[in-house]
Amino acid sequence: MSFKRSRMARMASALGTILGALALVLTIPNSAFAAGCSGSGCDDHDPNIQTWQSGPVTNYTVQVGGSEFLELRWGKTDGDQYSWARLEYFSLAPDYHIMIERCNSSGTSCTTYLGYTKVGASGWTAKVAGSSNTYVTRTPMYYNPSTSKARACIVKSNGATTCTPYY
């Protein structure tokens, strides 16, 4: 009788392990998978793994230093528009953070610090192809429908903020 219980306990344990592993696989998003997007539910997604219907394009570029350029990027996926910030810089990462600011079309209500990302952050920074010393750091993407407007901003270590125009 105890052999039968021991065998049942091992089987139950094995089944629990399998179900736990399956649940883990289903709940952890695969970073190489570009999910379908719908509205603000896709806020904070990585724009580099998204499938785009149009774009991505740069709407505005602002020079924020000798070799530092802040871009407001835009793309359309699953019928919706999204924006994100990207800073291109030479060699060493400046002591900046980049972010998106999203406002209603009249500008009376804004959400700031969307995707607040340290320049040089792992996972959000890459070397520009064909360049030996030029890098870009980007923010996640944010829903930017025709009823709102967005802009890219940098926040320097001294608190000074520089932004692109709104799009």
Results as ranks from 00 to 15, higher is better:
99 M>C: 13
104 N>V: 11
97 H>M: 14
112 T>R: 04
162 T>E: 05
100 I>H: 05
110 C>D: 05
134 T>I: 15
89 Y>I: 00
149 K>E: 11
118 K>Y: 10
132 S>Y: 10
116 Y>P: 04
128 V>L: 13
149 K>W: 05
160 A>D: 15
159 G>H: 06
162 T>K: 15
103 C>W: 10
117 T>K: 07
97 H>W: 08
150 A>S: 09
122 S>C: 05
138 R>T: 10
145 P>W: 12
126 A>C: 09
113 Y>L: 07
134 T>H: 14
144 N>T: 11
127 K>W: 13
157 S>I: 01
100 I>Y: 06
157 S>C: 03
155 V>N: 05
133 N>A: 13
110 C>S: 01
88 E>P: 02
82 Y>W: 03
113 Y>W: 06
129 A>M: 11
146 S>T: 14
142 Y>K: 05
82 Y>I: 07
102 R>T: 01
81 Q>F: 15
106 S>E: 12
122 S>N: 10
102 R>A: 09
101 E>W: 04
85 A>N: 04
119 V>M: 02
118 K>F: 00
132 S>D: 15
147 T>S: 14
92 L>C: 13
88 E>W: 15
100 I>R: 04
104 N>C: 12
133 N>D: 13
138 R>F: 11
87 L>Q: 00
80 D>S: 07
162 T>P: 03
121 A>Q: 02
118 K>T: 13
80 D>V: 03
157 S>A: 11
139 T>R: 00
87 L>N: 05
93 A>D: 07
108 T>L: 14
114 L>Y: 00
162 T>Q: 11
97 H>E: 12
131 S>Y: 11
126 A>E: 14
153 C>K: 01
118 K>Q: 11
124 W>T: 03
86 R>A: 08
154 I>C: 00
90 F>M: 14
108 T>Y: 15
93 A>I: 00
110 C>I: 06
146 S>F: 08
95 D>T: 14
80 D>F: 08
142 Y>L: 12
120 G>D: 01
149 K>L: 11
116 Y>W: 05
82 Y>E: 04
86 R>I: 03
152 A>R: 00
88 E>N: 14
141 M>L: 09
148 S>A: 12
89 Y>K: 03
152 A>Y: 00
156 K>E: 06
151 R>G: 00
135 Y>I: 11
110 C>T: 04
145 P>L: 14
142 Y>G: 07
128 V>D: 05
154 I>V: 15
86 R>F: 04
96 Y>Q: 10
81 Q>K: 14
98 I>Y: 00
141 M>R: 03
82 Y>P: 06
104 N>K: 09
161 T>M: 14
128 V>N: 05
153 C>Q: 01
160 A>C: 11
142 Y>V: 03
108 T>C: 07
147 T>E: 09
136 V>C: 04
106 S>K: 14
119 V>N: 01
158 N>P: 05
117 T>G: 01
135 Y>H: 07
140 P>Q: 12
117 T>D: 09
154 I>T: 03
153 C>W: 10
142 Y>T: 01
80 D>G: 08
139 T>H: 00
89 Y>W: 15
91 S>T: 15
98 I>W: 02
117 T>W: 06
157 S>L: 04
126 A>S: 15
111 T>P: 08
